[in-house]
Amino acid sequence: MRRIWFALFGGLFGAVGVAFLGAFRADALADPTSLATFSLWLGASTLYVLGGLDASIGDFDWYQLVGLGNVCLGLQMVARAAMTLADGTGETEPLLATFGGVVGGLTLAYIGLDWFRGGRHFDLSTFEESPTADPE
């Protein structure tokens, strides 16, 4: 039952992405970096939903779909950071936030790759479906 949270989280991500696109329309996809960021965002939300619903896509298991969603979300954070660095402002606060975004994005991508490989470093068993224990 815990896997359903991935589907809910992915659905929320998708709704926020569509609302963002609706609010900013063509301006949101004006440059290639914004297009890549938005595509990775929607890709992550789709993969979360599919993994959370235990959908069968080719030979991929649910945890591989969620892992790829984590990789997409991590790469999206790195792409946003690259967009901030390319902005050219030399202020300290945006650079510190950008550095935090890069570290967080790469960490999330690493966790996603580990999940895709089967969870060698990060435990997947907490999301496995198991029958409830009989109290008797």
Rank of each mutant, 00 (worst) to 15 (best):
W5N: 05
W5D: 02
F6Q: 03
L8E: 11
F9E: 00
G10P: 04
G10K: 03
G10A: 05
G11S: 11
G11D: 04
L12S: 11
L12M: 14
G14A: 13
A15G: 06
V16K: 09
G17M: 05
V18Y: 03
A19S: 10
F24E: 06
A26K: 05
A30M: 08
D31F: 08
D31K: 09
S34G: 15
A36K: 07
A36G: 05
F38Q: 10
L40V: 12
L40C: 05
A44M: 10
A44L: 07
S45P: 07
L47N: 05
Y48M: 15
V49L: 11
V49F: 12
G52M: 08
G58D: 03
D59R: 14
F60W: 15
D61P: 06
W62M: 07
W62G: 03
Q64F: 08
V66Q: 01
L68E: 08
N70Q: 11
N70C: 14
V71H: 05
C72A: 15
L73V: 12
L73D: 04
G74A: 01
M77G: 10
M77R: 07
A79P: 01
A81R: 00
A81M: 05
G88L: 07
G88Y: 07
E91Y: 04
E91D: 14
P94E: 02
P94F: 01
L96I: 13
A97S: 13
T98C: 06
G101E: 06
V102W: 00
V103H: 01
V103K: 03
V103Y: 03
V103E: 03
V103A: 10
T107Q: 09
T107H: 09
L108Q: 06
L108D: 01
L108W: 06
L108S: 05
I111E: 00
G112L: 06
L113F: 15
R117D: 14
R120D: 12
H121W: 13
F122P: 05
